[in-house]
Design a protein around this nucleic acid. Structure first.
Lengths: 201, 201
DNA sequence: GTCTATATTTGGATAGAC
DNA sequence: GTCTATCCAAATATAGAC
């Protein structure tokens, strides 16, 4: 998997550039420079720029699945696993500060472009959503698991957007702490939560 | 203010198009079609596309200031005013679902483009941040007012991003309810909050 | 102030030699 | 599989007539 073929080189370089510069703003020349091949050589590997995007999205989907599987193995409890999710904000804080969230910014851009690969890109969000949802179900919150998953996903997105705009890593740490507290209070009140209309707090 | 000059027409059309399609994806032709003038005529009013962006940002800043002033007048208590902020998500939910948040998506795009007007665009965020901060101070939360302001701003951003990705207005309403609850619980516990290390919950 | 015509550049894509 | 040369379309920007 991911051998050092030219094909993979292109996808990897495009992946990075799409993240840092955005999809539309990244030209074939940019990718060609990064991979050190000529522009013409591209079309031996991909029919169009859209096809490169497609390949990038599918690589990201595969990597995300791998990461979630890993968290599933490492985390002994659902709390631990959800904490793994929350802590990617810490692990990636330097990049988030500079470029935002790779998932959120891609989906936002493709929405503006009204691009055909929107649905594929959104699967990245769905991957996290359903995984988190399953963890909350395991926590006994089966009635509002999806709401909790979406809530957490939204908070992560908001943190990434503002950390990027304000170039503020400290804010990431601040909010991660709040999310951890929120998670703890969510799990403590599992029993009574079944009867509450209010999924968080 | 905002007379029907060609200049203003251009700025208004660009404002809409930048929001719906993104800045880079919007061409002079797009704006020209909307305003119904020829492309060449642009350069009588603006020296470059960047200059149009600059004008758009400043119009948005002025409109935002006007809106915040209005909320200041209408809202009798700081809670009421903060609720006004939270409820723009409801008022604009149809557009947010389709195009995301106008502030967040612009700042994210300009960050990727590494555009010179990033700082100006970020002032839109700062406007909300300082205004919310002031409201929280009035609520007696002077030690953590800015944290609370940023927290609320982040949650709004996250809601907009996910509502856009999942094309889900219901999610907006769900999260607005949670934000209102959060605000209520924040204000109830004002006295003890002074001694808590934990600004929310 | 507005138009048409045009210059210039860039980006995506193709053809064909090696 | 990789390269050079080239085509085509679109986008920013300018010149100059009306």
């Amino acid at each position: 998997m991911s051998e050092k073929t030219t094909h993979n080189h292109i996808v990897e370089a495009a992946d990075q550039l799409f993240y840092r510069q955005g999809y539309e703003h990244t030209s074939f020349s940019n990718i060609a420079d990064a991979v050190k091949i000529s522009r013409g050589n591209f079309y031996h590997h991909f029919k169009s720029k859209d096809e490169i995007l497609d390949a990038v999205i599918h690589v990201r989907l595969a990597n995300t699945r791998k990461m979630l599987d890993q968290w599933e193995i490492e985390g002994k409890t659902p709390e631990d696993r959800i904490l793994s999710f929350i802590h990617i904000l810490i692990g990636n804080r330097a990049k988030i500060k500079r470029y935002g969230c790779p998932v959120g910014t891609l989906c936002s851009e493709l929405a503006k472009l009204n691009h055909g690969s929107q649905a594929e890109a959104n699967k990245l969000f769905t991957l996290f959503r359903t995984w988190l949802c399953r963890q909350f179900i395991l926590l006994g919150r089966k009635t509002d698991a999806d709401e909790l998953a979406m809530h957490l996903l939204a908070r992560s997105q908001g943190v990434a957007t503002l950390a990027n705009a304000f170039h503020d890593e400290k804010f990431i740490k601040q909010e991660v702490k709040l999310m951890c507290d929120w998670l703890r209070s969510s799990t403590e009140s599992t029993a009574q939560a079944e009867h509450s209309s209010n999924p968080s707090l």
